[in-house]
Design a protein around this nucleic acid. Structure first.
Lengths: 238, 238
DNA sequence: GCATATTTTGAACTAGATTCAAAAAACGAT
DNA sequence: ATCGTTTTTTGAATCTAGTTCAAAATATGC
């Protein structure tokens, strides 16, 4: 009946309200400082009400992550639409992500935290699969680019599945961001901070997949121009 | 004077005792279940005593990590001693790590957790730099292998620092392990579990660095043989 | 053997997540 | 509109586990 639909909608709205407020609080004082009671009060609800939406604090963090990944997806969709050689498109993902993560450092940390057993295991099963679902379209887009490369004859998979190749780029991105965001690590090993290191390594990986056209890494210029081109065309930094 | 030396030693011994016990408890029930009071009791000490060694629970987890990384280092040292072409040696690190992490799944999770802001920021500064120090010899060894490759003419850095190249392999390993250990992730994206995916991607990266001799990835056989060879020669699975 | 300094102890303190019985609100039938 | 019933909200009470600290125990040096 009609009333229950409205209720459902109101419930959904309240959930978004909680998430909005959580986002704001995290913005202000970092996600470690987030407190359930404080959050509830900030929304003029009782603590218990918060627990009608999220089974635990971890569940809430994960919900936040899931919602946030919609923004992330948007990025990928922009690249999906972009008409360009596959090699540029796959690299564009890396560039877009780098920029995205740069600006949402809190979220990189949060996602790192959420993927931890400590958090993962304390969220509801529903939430976990929701979050995994969020990855699906992204996965589809990346696979699509790999597939395009194969179809265009730019990439010979040599027996590897499209997923395997996509996984490689993913792992490299993931690992780079993790290392990047670990306090003091780059400094301890005197690795220059900044995206270029990761860009170069990504292109090495792509070259190693024989993903044409290969990029010449001996010139800093070439890569920098490429990055700028991508940033402009995709309207990154917007 | 003599007495204070003995005291120092006893203190050190007790610290190891705590860490041993913590290790055992984690073995039994996972690191999330570790409780300071329980741990102290298990060692027949009061809770307060535990806090004379570790400023917080996070500090303890980090100490555990630091100690554990000595085992990790051992692995790297075995490879450092190993006389072989640089390309085999750098890949051997990957193989050895894979095996190591396979068997110490708890530690992969712990290290993932420890590198989280939530933990990192709650450990003492001393401990943090201790942990970073632990990475130094490993870093040195990997850099050494890269350097060997350059000296042997197997690798043209094309202007990249040895650290940058080492960083690439590190990030790929790191990222792969993170993804591997995130519950349900591989399954959600139907990526076959097992080390071969990561081995192939690592070799793609190395090929992309033009690290000679390049490995032909079109044959599963070749790679598998290589892995077996490395495992035998390094006496992995021991 | 005694005065002083150091170390250990564990009960008390604390923070903050979670629960749940009571109160309030919504609902639906009369 | 009224009343009995169901659903939702509330927030004080509960609970867990990390951390502290004053008192007790032990060690040290004279």
């Amino acid at each position: 009946m009609g009333t229950s639909e409205r209720k459902q909608r109101e419930r959904e709205e309240r959930e978004q309200l909680f998430l909005d407020a959580a986002e704001q609080l995290i913005e202000q004082e970092g996600f470690m400082q987030l407190q359930m009671a404080k959050l509830a009060k900030a929304c003029d609800y009782a603590t218990g009400t918060l627990y009608q939406h999220f089974t635990s604090k971890e569940d809430l963090l994960m919900a936040l992550m899931a919602r946030h990944s919609a923004l992330h997806l948007e990025l990928f969709e922009r690249i999906e639409q972009w008409q360009a050689p596959s090699r540029q498109r796959i690299f564009a993902i890396c560039v877009a992500e780098q920029d995205f993560n740069q600006r949402q450092a809190n979220y990189v940390k949060l996602s790192q935290y959420v993927m931890t057993e400590a958090v993962w295991e304390n969220a509801s099963e529903t939430r976990r699969s929701q979050l995994l679902q969020c990855g699906q379209p992204i996965c589809r887009i990346v696979s699509g680019i790999v597939q395009q490369a194969i179809d265009d004859g730019d990439l010979d998979p040599q027996g590897a599945s499209t997923m395997e190749l996509a996984y490689g780029t993913w792992a490299l991105c993931q690992g780079s961001h993790t290392l990047d965001h670990t306090q003091g690590l780059l400094e301890a090993f005197s690795i220059p901070r900044g995206p270029m290191t990761m860009y170069r390594n990504m292109n090495r990986l792509l070259n190693g997949m024989s993903w044409h056209p290969l990029l010449d890494l001996s010139s800093t210029e070439t890569l920098q121009t490429l990055v700028q081109q991508i940033e402009q065309q995709l309207n990154i930094h917007s």
